[in-house]
C-alpha cells in the first residue's frame, strides 16, 4: 500500500518533468492549429516548422559556433586548469597560498560586479563580434582548478617520486603520469565546463551582434523574442527543440556522469 503510494508519487513526478519535453517535441511536428492540445501524436505529421526555422535563422552556423566555443573553452580549462591544479597541489613556490586564497576569493565574486567592465574590456580590445570575446574570458576556471587540485592531492606521492627517479621533470610527470590517472576529474570538469558554456546566453548577447558569430542559444533567444517567428508556436518550439536535442542525446547516453558532475558544483 505504502509502496504503491510511493510509486504513484514518483510516477506523477516523472510525468511532470518529462511530459513537457515530449509535448514540445511532438508539437514541432504538428500543424500549427493542433499545438494547443494535450495529445502527443500529430493527426498530420509535418516538417514545416523545421523548414521555416532553417529558412529564417542560420541555425547550423550557430551550432558550429557553439561547438567551437564550448570545445575550445573546455579544452583550455582542462589543459590549463590541470597545470595550475598540479602546481597548487604538488609544487612549492612563493605565492602558492596567495593564489589559493585569490581563487577562493574570485569564486565568491558575483558576476554582476564584473560583467560591465568585462564588456568594456572587450570593446577596448576590439574583441566584440569575434570568437575571442566568447572564448578568452572562459579559458580558465577557478572551480576547475580546485577540483583538479583536490584530485591530484589524493594521488600517492610515491608514484610521483618514482617518476622523478626515472628522470621525468614536473611537466612530463603531469602529462605522462598524472593525466592518464585523471579520467574521473577530467570528465567532471569537462562536463561542467562544457554545459556551462553551451548554455550561456547573457554573455553572447552582450558581446556578439553579428548574426554569423552568434551561438546557438543566442540565435534561438533572439529568434524567440524578436518576432521573427511571427507568433507561430511551432516554429519557436522547433528552434528550441533543435537547441535542446544535442544536450538531450548526450544526457541520455552519459546521464550518470552528468548527474554526478553537475551535483559536484554544489559541493564547494
Amino acid at each position: 500500500m505504502k509502496r504503491a503510494l510511493h510509486y504513484s508519487i514518483l510516477l506523477l513526478g516523472t510525468i511532470i518533468f518529462l511530459y513537457p519535453f515530449l509535448w514540445m517535441i511532438s508539437a514541432t511536428f504538428k500543424p500549427e492549429l493542433e499545438i494547443a492540445s494535450f495529445g502527443l501524436w500529430p493527426s498530420q505529421f509535418t516538417l514545416s516548422s523545421y523548414e521555416q526555422v532553417f529558412a529564417k535563422i542560420p541555425i547550423l552556423r550557430s551550432l558550429f559556433n557553439s561547438l567551437l566555443v564550448s570545445l575550445s573553452i573546455t579544452a583550455s580549462v582542462l589543459f590549463f586548469g590541470s597545470m595550475v591544479g598540479y602546481s597548487l597541489s604538488r609544487l612549492r613556490f612563493r605565492g602558492r597560498n596567495l593564489m589559493l586564497m585569490v581563487i577562493l576569493f574570485t569564486m565568491m565574486i558575483p558576476f554582476q560586479l564584473t560583467i560591465i567592465p568585462l564588456y568594456i574590456l572587450m570593446v577596448k580590445l576590439h574583441w566584440t563580434d569575434s570568437y575571442m570575446a566568447l572564448i578568452a574570458p572562459g579559458m580558465m576556471s577557478g572551480f576547475g582548478v580546485l577540483l583538479f587540485r583536490q584530485f591530484f592531492q589524493a594521488i600517492p606521492q610515491s608514484l610521483i617520486d618514482a617518476a622523478r627517479m626515472d628522470g621525468l621533470n614536473d611537466v612530463q610527470i603531469l602529462f605522462k603520469i598524472i593525466w592518464p590517472l585523471s579520467r574521473p576529474v577530467m570528465i567532471t570538469v569537462g562536463i561542467i565546463t562544457f554545459m556551462n558554456t553551451w548554455n550561456e546566453v547573457l554573455w553572447p548577447l552582450i558581446v556578439i551582434r553579428d548574426r554569423a558569430l552568434m551561438t546557438m542559444p543566442q540565435t534561438v533567444t533572439i529568434f524567440a523574442v524578436s518576432g521573427m517567428a511571427e507568433a507561430q508556436l511551432g516554429v519557436k518550439l522547433a528552434a528550441a527543440t533543435l537547441l535542446a536535442l544535442p544536450v538531450i542525446i548526450a544526457y541520455a547516453i552519459f546521464q550518470r556522469y552528468f548527474i554526478e558532475s553537475m551535483a559536484s558544483t554544489g559541493l564547494k
Binding site: F80, V84, S87, L91, F93, T106, P117
Partner: peptide, 30 residues
C-alpha cells in the same frame, strides 16, 4: 607534501596561466 625548494620554477610556469587570466578578466574588471 614534498619539501622542495621554495622557488620551484616549474611551479611559477605552471601557475602562470591562472595569473594571466586573473589579471585580464578578474583584476582589471574589478
Amino acid at each position: 607534501m614534498p619539501k622542495k625548494p621554495k622557488n620551484n620554477r616549474t611551479g611559477y610556469l605552471l601557475s602562470l596561466p591562472y595569473w594571466v587570466h586573473f589579471a585580464f578578466f578578474m583584476a582589471y574588471p574589478l
